[in-house]
């Protein structure tokens, strides 16, 4: 149990949090990676997923790509990208985006598809254009599932961002691998606890957002 006490002492120590390589900076770095990866992925995946949901075309491709990414070992993807692109953030960022895009596409098309077709027909009958149907009916009503896709993607990226330190990127994985290489179990443990807490807080904040949205009138 000594390691546990050491780990928590490390997490409670202000010195361990300060400085450019401290837990504070690494946590921010971890969050920054996650936010950036999520933003890039969303720019690519949201329009694609919404189009697939709206038109019903390309659905099979989206389903297959989601399944393939589930089978893809994240460590293999990161190390492969790192060998081609070198040490740094580009390689892990590509891996994050590859892992995040299918979840977001799946959430977006499932969200649009979940809207009652009768409601969509009614919107068309009112004289709405396709664009209006998408932005005023399908997106607002499908929002919980669309955000659910972003939630899955965010969790995937937070977990993978820990591995990114293996190929030379920053984030909380740095502390974890530092502990691993110097046989410092307390350090590994402290970093692991920090990553787990970060993931759970992130997941919980998505849950709260989804619940709050449900209360907004006009949204599903």
């Amino acid at each position: 149990m000594n390691h546990v006490i050491d780990a928590f002492e490390l997490l409670a120590d202000p010195d361990a949090w300060g400085g450019p390589g401290g837990f504070g900076a690494r946590t921010l770095e971890h969050l920054w990676y996650t936010a950036l990866a999520l933003l890039i992925s969303a720019v690519i995946a949201l329009p694609a997923g919404l189009v697939i949901g709206h038109t019903g075309r390309g659905r099979a491709l989206a389903v297959i790509s989601t399944g393939m990414v589930r089978a893809l070992p994240t460590l293999g993807l990161i190390t492969l990208a790192a060998l081609f692109l070198g040490i740094g953030l580009t390689a892990p960022m590509i891996a994050f985006v590859v892992l995040a895009v299918p979840s977001i596409i799946a959430g977006a098309y499932a969200g649009v598809e979940s809207v009652n077709p009768v409601t969509v027909d009614a919107a068309k009958a009112q004289g709405m254009s396709r664009w209006q149907v998408l932005t005023r009916v399908e997106i607002p009503l499908g929002l919980p599932l669309i955000i659910g896709g972003l939630r899955n993607a965010a969790l995937q990226v937070v977990a993978t961002a820990t591995l990114a330190a293996y190929v030379g990127a920053g984030g909380l994985g740095r502390q974890l691998f530092l502990g691993l290489r110097t046989q410092d179990y307390a350090m590994m443990l402290a970093a692991s606890i920090a990553v787990i807490l970060l993931a759970i807080v992130l997941d919980a904040s998505f849950e709260v957002t989804q619940r709050l949205l449900r209360r907004v009138p006009g949204l599903a």
Binding site: V158, L163, L176, S192, V195, I196, D203
Partner: peptide, 17 residues
């Protein structure tokens, strides 16, 4: 289901305790 939110590498390290 919440357990799935826990990243794998940290779990491999915490579990031995």
């Amino acid at each position: 289901g919440l357990l799935y939110a826990v990243p794998s590498l940290p779990l491999f390290i915490v579990l031995p305790i």
